[in-house]
C-alpha cells in the first residue's frame, strides 16, 4: 500500500546512524513512506539505506543540503505524494513529532509547518555567532511575515503539495535554506506556522555550520533576504 505522505531525508556521509533513524521513523510514524537522498556520500550511506528497504536517490555529485532536499521534493511531486516531511539524517530530529507537524497541514490550517526548538520544549544549545544570526534573521522574518519566527533554520518541516512545488523551483537555495525561504513562502502566498519540538545535539559527524561558514551565512542571508524582497513573486498557486 502506498502512503500519501513521504518523509524526505537528505544524507551526506551518515553511515553508521542512518539505518537506526529509518527504523525509528518506521516505529514512530507508521504509514508514511521514506526516501533518502544521498548527497554524493563517500561512505556506505546508500548501502545501509538499501538494506532497510527504503528507496535511496543517489546524487552523482555533492549538491549541498538544499540541493539534496530539492531532489526529494521533485521525487515526491513526480510520485504524487500529497504531503511531505523533511528531516535531517543526523538524529537531531525526533520522529515522534512527525504526526504533530503533519496535523495542521492535513487540516488545511497551514501550508507548511516548521518544528521549532525554541518554543519551550527541550534544551538546545547553539554556537554564539549562529545563535545571534538566528535571532537577527528570525526577527527580520518575524517583521516581514507578521508572525513570530523563533527558529528560522529549522530543517524539520511538514508541507503540502503547493510548498513542495515551490521548493522544487529554481529560487530554492542549494546550500542552507533559512529565514529567506520563510519570506519567499510568505510572498508566494503560502502560510507557515511553527510548532514546538525537541531537538537533540548532533550525535555523529560535523555540523554543516562550522569554521568560517557562520560569516558567509550572515552575509548570504542578508543578501538573500534583500533580493527576495526586491523580487516580484512569480509563483502561481495551483488552486
Amino acid at each position: 500500500m502506498r502512503s500519501d505522505t513521504l518523509i524526505i531525508i537528505p544524507a551526506h556521509n551518515e553511515a553508521g546512524g542512518i539505518a537506526r533513524i529509518i527504523e525509528d521513523i518506521r516505529a514512530k510514524a507508521p504509514g508514511a513512506d521514506i526516501v533518502v537522498v544521498d548527497d554524493g556520500s563517500t561512505d556506505s550511506t546508500a548501502l545501509e539505506v538499501s538494506e532497510t528497504g527504503a528507496p535511496v536517490i543517489r546524487l552523482p555529485v555533492n549538491l549541498g543540503y538544499g540541493g539534496a532536499l530539492q531532489t526529494g521534493f521533485k521525487y515526491a511531486i513526480s510520485r504524487g505524494y500529497l504531503y511531505a516531511v523533511q528531516m535531517d539524517a543526523d538524529g537531531q530530529h525526533e520522529p515522534s513529532y512527525i504526526p504533530k507537524l503533519l496535523e495542521p497541514v492535513r487540516a488545511g490550517a497551514a501550508d507548511v509547518v516548521l518544528g521549532s526548538r525554541f518554543m519551550g520544549l527541550g534544551e538546545y544549545r547553539s554556537t554564539f555567532v549562529r545563535g545571534m544570526g538566528m535571532k537577527l534573521f528570525g526577527s527580520i522574518a518575524s517583521v516581514t511575515i507578521g508572525r513570530r519566527v523563533t527558529d528560522p533554520t529549522s530543517g524539520f518541516q511538514a508541507m503540502n503539495r503547493e510548498v513542495m512545488r515551490f521548493y522544487a523551483s529554481d529560487l530554492y537555495p542549494v546550500d542552507f535554506p533559512d529565514a529567506d525561504v520563510l519570506i519567499m513562502l510568505h510572498r508566494a502566498g503560502l502560510k507557515s506556522v511553527e510548532v514546538p519540538v525537541e531537538m537533540y545535539q548532533r550525535v555523529e559527524g560535523v555540523s554543516m555550520h562550522s569554521g568560517l561558514k557562520p560569516l558567509y551565512y550572515v552575509f548570504k542571508m542578508f543578501l538573500s533576504i534583500l533580493v527576495t524582497l526586491l523580487r516580484k513573486n512569480t509563483f502561481i498557486k495551483d488552486v
Binding site: 535511496v56 536517490i57 543517489r58 546524487l59 555529485v61 549538491l63 540541493g67 531532489t71 521533485k74 513526480s78
Partner: peptide
C-alpha cells in the same frame, strides 16, 4: 551551476526509477 544541479538531480531520480 544551476543547470548542473538540475541535471544531477534528474540523473539521480532516473537512476532510482530504473533500479526500482
Amino acid at each position: 551551476t544551476k543547470s548542473n544541479k538540475t541535471l544531477s538531480q534528474e540523473i539521480a531520480l532516473l537512476k532510482q526509477r530504473m533500479e526500482e
